[in-house]
């Protein structure tokens, strides 16, 4: 009895959360297209999210390419198919690994950052102060952050993918005597628009999800410092989950349109 009650309660909370998130998202779209545009704040957020994540994304991407190549080599060598390494690595990185892993890293960095920042602003009444001084805090804080995340994440993913391929090429060059030119040739022979375009479109949604969940959790933060921690923590969890859901849907859709 109590267990079923708990499950019902949890389901209810979950559904309420989903509903609130949807309202939050619809409010975002409504406010996104209404004046005034907080352009300077948008640029500042782009800078904070983009440039400040470059090192993280670069290192992650480099190691991703390096490790992925190193780990796949023995298996492919068993088949005598080392020459397929560049194609395999580039396709899997560009299509799936790069976007998902970099988005997850960014969910950890950006979502929690936004959640904590907005949460503490909510708790210390800074959001109220903003509203009282006549500035729409949703526009100033939420719209700019979600938009910045949506715009910046694809760029970060492209940046990360490129570095990952450099890492992979390095390993191939050191271990397999594949020149950088040959690697590059093979990569671009293997890649198609149907690899790069769905991945890029998908990464916009990833960015939107990261920004949306971070802002939602932070903006609706409960009072107290515990609330801030909770906001940033659950922002990461929800954002990561949402990323996989989006990825799942994206694969289905790109399957229909691009015949992978």
């Amino acid at each position: 009895m109590t267990i079923s009650h708990k499950i019902a309660q949890k389901t209810k909370t979950f559904l309420i959360e989903i509903g609130e998130l949807s309202f939050f998202a619809s409010r975002y779209f409504k406010e996104l297209f209404s004046k005034p545009f907080e352009f300077n704040e948008l640029l500042l957020q782009c800078y904070k999210m983009g440039n400040k994540s470059l090192l993280l994304v670069g290192v992650t991407g480099f190691i991703l390419g390096l490790v992925f190549t190193l780990q796949s080599r023995p298996t492919l060598m068993e088949f005598g198919a080392e020459s397929w390494m560049p194609s395999m690595v580039s396709i899997s990185i560009v299509r799936e690994l790069g976007p998902v892993i970099i988005a997850l890293i960014c969910a950890g960095k950006l979502s929690s950052g936004i959640g904590a920042e907005l949460g503490s602003m909510r708790v210390t009444e800074q959001i109220d102060a903003m509203e009282v001084s006549g500035t729409n805090p949703f526009k100033y804080l939420v719209v700019t952050r979600i938009l910045a995340a949506t715009l910046i994440l694809p760029l970060l993913i492209i940046f990360g993918d490129t570095i990952a391929l450099v890492g992979s090429a390095l390993i191939e060059n050191l271990k397999g005597d594949v020149s950088f030119q040959l690697y590059y040739n093979k990569v671009f022979n293997a890649l198609k628009f149907s690899d790069i375009i769905p991945a890029t479109i998908k990464s916009f949604f990833f960015g939107f999800a990261i920004g949306l969940v971070g802002c939602f959790k932070g903006y609706n933060c409960k009072k107290g410092t515990v609330g801030v921690g909770e906001a940033s923590n659950s922002a990461v969890v929800y954002a990561s989950m949402l990323l996989f859901v989006i990825d799942f849907i994206a694969v289905f859709i790109s399957d229909i349109f691009f015949e992978i």
């Binding site: 440039n51 470059l54 492209i158 940046f159 993918d161 790069i196």
Partner: peptide
């Protein structure tokens, strides 16, 4: 900040454009 941001955006976009061009 704006300059750095611009640089980052241009470089990343260039990567994308170059990739699209080569493909």
């Amino acid at each position: 900040h704006k300059i750095k941001l611009g640089l980052f955006i241009i470089i990343s976009s260039l990567f994308l454009i170059i990739a699209l061009y080569f493909i």
